[in-house]
């Protein structure tokens, strides 16, 4: 249970990090909080020859609200959880973060690491999908912005090259007038969830939903939007269609069976969670 030998460097700037990644492109990995990568290296499921530590790059860390909310890639989970700006802009992020691992994981794990790792069971990628997040990705010679829908390709795979790093996640829409709900089912608190739902909705004065996003984790190789359920909810009073939306979500997904749960069970949980989230949003406007 010890990692194989590797070469290590701590980059000080994004330019230096991407140049190093480019030079060692055949077998290099970015090291952020290490909370997913180091367990894999300890078990020798990952054996990168070179690690580029990005946690010393000041410009990658921090939270900024400026019309949009921008969370720097190496901002640690605890910092996101403690941030008043995050809670004011998008309380659903803080609510979801409480389910990410345990305190001793959140002190080192990073927001960008969670996104870049792209574990389909993880909470943060589902949040990025639900909030129409935009990912800023830097390479050796240029920077680009990727929409959430294009970023997650499959399990542990994103739309990034070996020589690119995720620098920040931008959330364009404040949730100050939106309703939201986050729920998940996990075997034990702090474990990766079997299924999770992140839902946000805007509702007009007559109580009719005008915009909805319902993202599910744990039901596919990427976080997915329950689009059929969303279409039903928009134009309706949320509470009246919650049960039917749950059924539509269940019908739309095709999860696999694994050691943790059967496909049937995941589908049932997804239906129940979508319904629960919508009922929350119908009554309270927000929920955990």
């Amino acid at each position: 249970m010890k990692p194989a030998p590797f070469k290590y460097a701590k980059a000080e700037t994004v330019a230096e990090a991407t140049a190093l990644l480019d030079q060692h492109a055949d077998d290099v990995k970015v090291l952020a909080g290490g909370q997913s990568l180091i367990p894999l290296m300890n078990m020798r499921l990952a054996r990168p020859e070179v690690l580029i530590d990005i946690t010393g790059i000041d410009e990658l860390s921090g939270i900024e609200v400026n019309g949009a909310l921008t969370i720097g890639a190496t901002t640690r989970h605890v910092e996101v959880l403690r941030s008043n700006e995050v809670r004011a802009f998008a309380p659903i992020i803080a609510a979801a973060m409480r389910h990410v691992g345990h305190v001793g994981v959140r002190t080192r794990g990073t927001f960008g690491g969670s996104v870049a790792h792209a574990d389909p069971a993880s909470e943060i990628p589902a949040i990025v999908i639900a909030l129409d997040g935009e990912l800023t990705v830097a390479g050796p010679s240029s920077e680009r912005t990727v929409a959430a829908a294009d970023y997650f390709v499959s399990t542990f795979t994103t739309d990034m090259e070996e020589n690119e790093i995720l620098t920040a996640v931008r959330f364009p829409y404040p949730l100050d007038r939106a309703r939201w709900s986050f729920h998940e089912v996990a075997r034990r608190h702090g474990d990766f969830a079997l299924v999770g739902v992140a839902a946000v909705a805007e509702v007009d004065d007559a109580g009719v939903c005008t915009r909805a996003r319902i993202a599910l984790s744990g039901v596919s190789d990427v976080p997915v939007r329950a689009t059929a359920a969303e279409e039903l909810v928009v134009g309706s009073t949320i509470g009246e269609v919650a049960a039917e939306a749950g059924r539509l979500a269940e019908r739309q997904i095709d999860p696999g069976s694994d050691f943790h749960a059967s496909a049937e069970y995941r589908k049932e949980v997804a239906r129940a969670l979508v319904t629960r989230a919508l009922n929350d949003m119908a009554t309270k406007g927000e929920a955990r």
């Binding site: 030998p5 070469k7 290590y8 460097a9 000080e12 230096e16 140049a19």
Partner: peptide, 13 residues
């Protein structure tokens, strides 16, 4: 490929 960026610290083991 040669990089235009001055890389101060090369990774070592």
């Amino acid at each position: 490929m040669s990089s235009t960026i001055d890389v101060g610290t090369q990774p070592t083991d």
